[in-house]
Computed example of a mutant assay.
Amino acid sequence: MNPELDLRDVYAASAGRLVAQLYGMTGDFADAQDAVQEAFARALSRPAGLHGVDNPEAWLCRVAMNIARSRHRRRLLFDRIARSGRLRGSDTTPPLSPDHVALVAALQRLPRATRETVVLHHIADRPVAEVAAILGCSVETVKTRLVRGRRALAEQLGETDKENSRA
């Protein structure tokens, strides 16, 4: 990263995109915002750590994704406790348009790696090579996940359209 580049500029340019990407991956807008904010807080806590990074936004995306994954694992544990009857869970997802809800629901049914790949490429509009770098996999793996993800989404969203037309 260029030492002259201010983290405030990176935030202004990329925070919205990162939140949108994480929202597509997590299905929870508040969680997405929190993960991105925490990623920026981590960058602020050790600014020298970003100086060697070629693409600060990609680094921040990876950190935010790791934060979201950790939170997801903790949420699963919490949900198990809640289902045991010791606690009650709550739904914190804000109301959205039916199209957004259908897309996020379809994304949530994809395997995690496929969902992350599809969101980074199609929603975040990142090139395949950059998606591979962010996810730490090969370009061919990204391409395979994209094909599988598009196919699965087409089937899921097509079934939703058929069900809605019957009603």
Rank of each mutant, 00 (worst) to 15 (best):
L110S: 04
R46T: 07
G52C: 06
F40G: 10
R86H: 09
A43C: 05
L76K: 04
A68I: 01
N55M: 03
R42I: 01
V101I: 12
C61Q: 08
W59Y: 14
S70N: 11
R109K: 12
P98S: 11
G89K: 09
V104G: 01
R83G: 13
A106V: 07
R73Y: 04
A58G: 13
R69S: 07
Q108G: 15
R62I: 02
F40P: 08
N55Y: 11
S70W: 01
R69A: 08
G89F: 05
M65V: 05
G49D: 15
A106S: 13
R46S: 14
R88Q: 15
L87F: 15
V104C: 04
A43I: 02
F78N: 05
R115C: 15
L87A: 14
P47C: 08
R74I: 03
L110F: 08
L120Y: 06
F40I: 09
L107Y: 12
D54F: 04
P94V: 02
V104R: 15
D91Y: 13
L103H: 01
E38G: 02
L103T: 08
W59Q: 10
S45N: 12
S45W: 01
R109Q: 14
F78H: 09
N55D: 15
C61I: 03
G89E: 14
P47W: 01
D91F: 11
D79F: 03
P56I: 01
T92N: 09
G49A: 15
V118A: 08
S90C: 07
A64G: 06
R88K: 11
A82K: 07
